[in-house]
Design a binder for these strands. Structure first.
Lengths: 201, 201, 201, 201
DNA sequence: TATGAATGAGTCTTCATTCAT
DNA sequence: CATGAATGAAGACTCATTCAT
């Protein structure tokens, strides 16, 4: 990467970092471009040099947020072990990630708000969840073929697992004190696994 | 109720109906007061007569949206039957409600966005979920005491059930075609129930 | 006209009057909306209530400016007399009008600037000159048929007459002291008339 | 001229060529310095190295545009022949020039727009027309003294001739299809000449 | 109660110009 | 001489809210 491209990347990161903070705190609409300017340490002109509008920044953030999330998926793909072990790895990674992600969670929900209104957002987020679902479904299929799991529908089960974590995350976001992630990290998974695990006969 | 009060109630409903539609379609910020005025068929002056600000309408909507939701909870409280039967009633009611609620779902997520930024929203939504959790926990306790269920933690299990439904709802909102509620209505519950059901020994 | 419509007309006139002054003094681009606001005595909101943009005001002015000019043409249509008498009436009306119009002349040239860039402007101004040319051509035809004038091309002659006045106006705008309209009022016309008048044989 | 000065001259021409094109297409205000940069093939820094501001470019263009025009006048001064012959030379030169100049005509009108607002523009353009008028007046005086023309006012007649051509040019700019320069090249002049030509007695 | 014209503070965005390299 | 990233003042426009009628 040329020094020039490096500078550009750095500036764009500066701006997205600032935007992430500001948008998370204030929401897309209450956030002022001047707030992002101040937070980024750049000038307004510099901001508009790299992103042509507020909306362009929001869309660039969308990419970054869900790209970051994708990393958990990668962990899963590369993992070895039984299906159950992989699901536990997923669970742990997801929970770790969620905690790290907490300050920016309202940002994520704001993006979700846009799903019905903006094609790009819709497609990006759908792609993210579909990828995820497929990976988990693959693991479950593995579990079925190795007789770890009963013959469940892999797709539906994958949706249930992701849904379970998304839902608990949502509830944790709303009422963190009411939910103890330390305990919940594996408990929900245990319940589901109990449900799909092959019963000895 | 006097005729005057009746008119007032009617007008307020008109406004909230319009606001619900407009906010759902455009979001709190892109929605214009003039849009609500047009949708409601009232005049701008009338709007401001009944609600003193845009924010007041949003807060009134918050009440209405989550009050509506509360009705499912009431169904549960009054129901008879085994714990499992009650959970199935809950499941069916929740799914039915979600479907009806779909056009306004982005509204709900926009409220969630406000959880970290607005005390009233936070408290209202927390109250809603806490109530819900307690009711479900009660049912699970009943199930444990009647030996339907294994000795699980009622609170955690309740959270898991609600989370499961909230999460699947979220995913259905994002990608309706990828999720078949008809099948999912009871499947997720089955999995969880399998997990907590008392094993014959 | 209802009182409401009357108010609207009055407001629009107020705005266009102000815009005419401000645009003439400063040009379309240097003129600030706030200048028009100040000049009009209205508020910025009121301005935008009646015209949705600066450009809308400019286009409304275009209408008004060239509609005003059209009145001279009407004088001609209704006039009686020989062709030459009518042309003299035209001459006098045109000169009188030009003098009145002087402060707003740079406005007219600014519109002309837009002829190649904006369809609406092009069409409006073309229509104006075509109408004018036709009226004059009609008078010249009359002069030919009554043997006042030699057998000239009515269309070309009309263009020459209008062109003559437009050109002298342009030069007067550029260098008023160099041109004495009092003398020039009829002199150019005399020259042209001398050229087309039927020579006694 | 040193190689260094040559380069400077070349660069300045590049810039003015680009500016002429861009300004003609977009107008002084809508044209962006970046457009001129792109059109010129230079860098922004280079542009500002040779011209210290947008306005400086506009003023340099003013010089160039009206200097170019001055060449027609030179043709006249050097010409031999009767007054009428000279006027025909003028006519042909003017028409030829106008056609060449067409793409940049809106530029000329934009300068005229500035006559009332900018001293330098006013003086430059006035000087141009005064020079022109004087040359033509001289020719007409010649024509009077040689008995070609009747005893007309040379100044007024010169104004009329220039005005006639300026006016027809304006109308041609506005509505090229409505005006056939091929025919109009000499026709207007004929009319005027008919008017001022010494009548045989 | 109801109306809708009017208000004006607040925003995003633009773009001529500068200057470190 | 040349580059183009950076600057920031300035301006068009928006829209929640008000208030005379």
């Amino acid at each position: 990467m040329s020094p020039k491209e490096e500078l550009e990347q750095e500036r764009r990161q500066q701006i997205l970092d600032a935007a992430e903070t500001v948008f998370s705190e204030q929401g897309f609409n209450d956030a002022r471009m001047d707030d992002i300017v101040a937070e980024s340490g750049l000038s307004k002109g510099a901001l508009y040099w790299y992103y042509k509008s507020k909306d362009a920044i929001i869309m660039a953030l969308l990419d970054r947020v869900f790209l970051q999330e994708m990393r958990i998926a990668e962990v899963l793909i590369d993992a070895d072990g039984t299906a159950e072990e992989k699901l536990r790895i997923f669970s742990r990674a997801a929970v770790a990630d969620i905690r790290h992600f907490k300050p920016f969670m309202s940002l994520a929900y704001e993006f979700i708000t846009l799903v019905t209104r903006r094609k790009e957002v819709r497609e990006k987020i759908r792609g993210y969840y579909r990828t995820y679902t497929q990976i988990l479904a693959g693991i479950i299929e593995q579990g079925i073929s190795t007789d770890e799991f009963a013959t469940v529908d892999p797709h539906k089960t994958a949706l249930a697992i992701i849904g379970l974590y998304e839902g608990i995350t949502l509830m944790w976001f709303i009422d963190p004190e009411n939910i103890d992630w330390d305990e919940l990290t594996e408990a929900p998974l245990d319940m589901l696994l109990d449900g799909i695990r092959k019963k000895e006969s």
